[in-house]
Amino acid sequence: MDRLPHLDRTLDESAPPRWASPAADATHLVRTVHAARRLPLGELGSVESRLLVSQQVALPYVLPLAVRLPRAVPLLDALFFPGDLLLATVGVPAAAWAPLP
């Protein structure tokens, strides 16, 4: 992955506002998304990328990084099945792709 200046920043830093901590009774999904927002972008793996893309969280930051992974391994298994990250990225609404180069 290219070393871009923003890869050492988290989504909470890059895509404000910073999210409050999840409620004590929050679901596993909510807790996991919140935890992924606190990881530096350069440390997002395939599992976190698939999760954030499928939940449409901070797509301008996550989508460019997420599409790099299946380019190398198209049927990458990002937790559920081979190709799940690729499927998540192609399922993103067209409007999310418009501002991206």
Rank of each mutant, 00 (worst) to 15 (best):
A23C: 07
R37I: 03
V62F: 00
L86S: 13
V73G: 00
L41F: 04
Y61I: 01
V67T: 12
A96E: 04
Y61W: 15
W19A: 15
L39Q: 15
D2C: 05
A78E: 04
V92W: 00
T27G: 14
R18Q: 11
A36R: 11
R18H: 10
V92Q: 01
A94Y: 09
W19V: 13
L65W: 03
L41H: 05
L11P: 11
W19C: 06
A23T: 05
T89L: 11
P22K: 07
V30T: 14
A66P: 06
T10C: 02
P17Q: 07
L39H: 07
F80C: 12
Q56T: 07
V33Q: 07
E13Y: 00
A36V: 12
D77K: 07
L29H: 12
L4F: 02
A88P: 00
L69M: 13
R38L: 11
V57C: 06
G45H: 06
V90A: 07
A23V: 08
A94F: 09
L52G: 05
P16D: 04
S46T: 15
V57R: 09
D8Y: 02
V67I: 15
L4N: 05
A24Q: 10
A20T: 09
Q55K: 07
Y61M: 02
V57S: 02
L59S: 07
L79D: 14
T32R: 15
S21L: 11
R38M: 13
P64Y: 05
V92D: 01
W97L: 05
L41P: 09
D77R: 13
L69F: 14
V33T: 02
L7F: 09
L52Q: 03
V90G: 01
V47N: 13
Q56I: 01
S21T: 07
A78M: 09
A78D: 06
P99Y: 03
V62I: 11
R3V: 12
H6C: 10
A36T: 11
P74T: 06
T10N: 03
R71T: 11
S14M: 11
P5G: 06
S54R: 14
R68N: 12
G91H: 06
G83D: 07
T10D: 01
L7R: 04
S49T: 06
G83K: 08
V73D: 14
A66Q: 00
L59M: 09
G91V: 04
P93Y: 08
P82T: 03
